[in-house]
Design a protein around this nucleic acid. Structure first.
Lengths: 312, 312
DNA sequence: GCCTTTCCATGAATCCTGTTCATGGACCGG
DNA sequence: CCGGTCCATGAACAGGATTCATGGAAAGGC
C-alpha cells in the first residue's frame, strides 16, 4: 500500500541528495556547484539524470538561476532528511562499538529557548559525552518553525512550542516537556500599566493567550507589533507599553521592568521537543533529550507529566 | 550546517547500506551476495571498506558465516531506516509533480452515507487519481462509530454524524459538511399515518429528533425498534408503521412510500468527516475530502458553512 | 589423518559512471 | 552590440565498484 511507484533502476546516491539540497538552498546550479566544490557541469548533469530517474522536473531553470518546483522542494526536503539520518549512522556505529556517544547533532530552537534552556543542556551533554558536539540553530518559531527545520532535514532535534490540541505533523515526533506561564510585564513604577498599549511580536502565537484575553474585561488601548520578543521587552522597559510574555522570554530581561502575575490561571504554553522517529533512536538525540529532561528548570517553567508509553 | 559528523572520506552509498542489511539478515556474505545478485567477493570488499570507514568491526566472520557484532546490528538497523526513507522519496516527488495521488485509504461510513454519498465521491476521486484506490468500510454508527474506526487506526477517514454541541474527541479532527433534514415516511395511500406506530432503529441517535418531538403535541401510539434503517423503510412500505428518517436514508427507498415534510423547522442532523490531524495532511485523505466537498449533493442535503482556517 | 566442502580474503583486471573540460546557446543590462 | 551570467551538452578522464581467479582456514565425512 505504501508502494506505488514504478521501480527505477538505481536509487539516489548521497552525493545526488547533496546536490539536490544545495541547489534548493542556493537556487542556482553554479552556486550549488561551488558550494559543494564541484563544477557547474557536474551539477547540471546530476540534476538532469535525477529528473529523468524521478520522472519530474525538479527545478525551473531561468536566467535568475534555478527555482525549485513543488516537486523539487519536496525532493530536497526529503533528501535533507535522508542525509541527516545517514550522517547519524557513523556515530551510531561508533557508539555501539566503543560505547562513546559522538556526532554533531543540530538542535533548532527559538530564541528564548536557545538562550535560557539550551546552555545548561549543551554543557551537561558535552560534559557527559566529550565526543558530542551539538550545533544550535536559532529559528524563528513562525510558520513551520523548528518542527519545519526537523521535517526538512536541517536539524536533528527541535525545541518547539507544542499545541496539545493539534496532532503531531506527519512523520514527526512531538513530546511536551515544560509548561510555561505568561506574565504581564510593564515599566517599573508605572501606576496604571493596563492603560498602556500592548506590545506583541510576530512569533507570539496569540492562540495561547487568546482564550485568556477573551475572559478578561480589560482590553489594551492599542497593539504595537514588533519582530522579536527582545524588542518587546526593551520597548516595555522604555515605557512604551506593556506586554504579556512567556516565562522564558522574561529571563535575562533588561532592567526597569516590573512583572505581574496574571492570576491563578494565567495563559500558558507548552514547550517540547520535535524529532523524527528514526532520529529519536539515535544515541546523540537520546542523550540530548535525556539532558533536556534532567536539566534544572529555569524559573517559570514546570515539567509536564511524562506520558507513559502506550503499548502499540 | 547540513553536516553532522566528523568528516569521513565518503558517506555510505545505498548499495552499501543494502549490503549491510542483507548480510545482517542472511548472516552470510555469500548468501547476501546471491540475494543481491552480486559476487561474494563484492560483498567482502564492500564490508571491508565499510568497516574501515566506520572504524568498527561490523561482522564476526567465522566458519558459520558472518555474525553481526553489536555495532553491526546497529549499523544494519540504521541502514534499513535510511533505505526506507530513501525509498519514499520517488513517490513523494511523483505526488508533488504530477499531483498523482496513490494509496489505498480506508473510508469508514455508516450505511446510508456509504450507499448514497460515497459512490459519487469514490468515482470522482478515482477518476481524478487513477492511482488511488479507496476502500469503503461500512460501520454501524453506534458507540464509537466511524470516529472510533479512525481513532483505532482501522480507517483513514470516517463519515460520521456530527454533534455540534460535543467538542471533538481528543486526537481527532471533525469537520461538518452537510445538514440533513428528517422527514416523515409512511405507507403511500394511508389516510392517517400519524396513528401508525413509529418505527425506529438502533443507530438513530434520537437526540437529533428529540427536541422536535418535544415540540409536537402528537405522540405515536407505539414504537417498533429494529436494527437498520433499511428495515425501517421496508416495514413502513409494508404498512406496518411510519417513521422519521433522515434524508440520506430516504434515497433509494423501496416503492410504496409517501414522504411528508416535517414543517418549516424539521429535525436535522449534521454529517461530516472525521480523521486525525496527521492523516488530514496526506494527499490521499485530502483528495477524498476535497471530493466530498465538491461532490453533487444528494437531495435533502445542504452544505454546511465551511469554517475558515485559523492561522497557526 | 586426508579430502571435500564451505566459508571468507585478496590482488589484478574490467566496467560503469560521476566529474571535468571545453564548448554552445539563451538572456539581460549597459 | 557586446560582455556577463546563467544553464546545456558531448567527449574525455578518473575513480571505484564489481568480477575473476585465486588462496587460506575451519569443519565434517570416511
Amino acid at each position: 500500500m505504501t508502494d506505488g511507484s514504478p521501480r527505477r533502476d538505481t536509487d539516489l546516491a548521497p552525493h545526488e541528495l547533496r546536490i539536490l539540497a544545495a541547489v534548493d538552498r542556493e537556487r542556482s546550479f553554479t552556486a550549488a556547484a561551488s558550494a559543494l566544490g564541484l563544477t557547474q557541469s557536474a551539477v547540471s548533469h546530476a540534476v538532469r539524470t535525477l529528473e529523468g530517474r524521478l520522472g519530474a522536473v525538479l527545478f525551473d531553470r531561468g536566467r535568475h538561476g534555478a527555482r525549485p518546483t513543488p516537486a523539487g522542494e519536496r525532493a530536497a526536503a526529503h533528501a535533507r532528511q535522508v542525509l541527516r539520518l545517514l550522517a547519524a549512522l557513523p556515530a551510531e556505529v561508533r557508539e555501539a562499538s566503543t560505547g562513546e556517544v559522538t556526532g554533531r547533532p543540530v538542535v533548532a530552537a527559538f530564541r528564548s529557548a536557545a538562550a535560557q534552556l539550551l546552555p545548561a543542556v549543551i554543557a551537561g551533554v558535552t560534559a557527559r559525552h566529550p565526543g558530542l558536539a551539538p550545533q544550535v540553530r536559532i529559528v524563528r518559531e513562525l510558520g513551520p518553525g523548528t518542527a519545519g527545520e526537523v521535517a526538512d532535514g536541517r536539524a536533528d532535534l527541535g525545541i518547539a512550542t507544542v499545541d496539545p490540541a493539534a496532532g503531531p505533523p506527519p512523520g514527526l515526533v512531538v513530546v511536551p516537556l515544560f509548561e510555561e506561564s505568561y506574565a504581564l510585564v510593564h515599566p517599573a513604577g508605572h501606576t496604571r500599566p493596563k492603560e498602556l498599549p500592548l506590545v506583541d511580536w510576530d512569533e507570539n502565537c496569540s492562540s495561547y493567550t487568546r482564550s485568556w484575553w477573551s475572559e478578561q474585561d480589560w482590553l489594551p488601548p492599542a497593539t504595537i507589533r514588533v519582530e522579536d520578543d527582545t524588542v518587546v521587552l526593551s520597548l516595555v522597559a522604555q515605557g512604551v507599553g506593556m506586554a504579556v510574555v512567556p516565562g522564558l522570554s522574561l529571563l535575562g530581561a533588561p532592567p526597569g521592568l516590573a512583572v505581574t502575575d496574571l492570576g491563578p490561571r494565567p495563559p500558558s504554553r507548552r514547550i517540547g521537543y520535535v524529532t523524527t522517529p528514526a532520529l529519536a533512536r539515535t544515541a546523540a538525540v537520546r542523550a540530548l533529550v535525556r539532558e533536556l529532561r534532567s536539566a534544572p528548570l529555569p524559573a517559570g517553567l514546570a515539567a509536564v507529566q511524562r506520558p507513559s508509553r502506550s503499548p502499540s
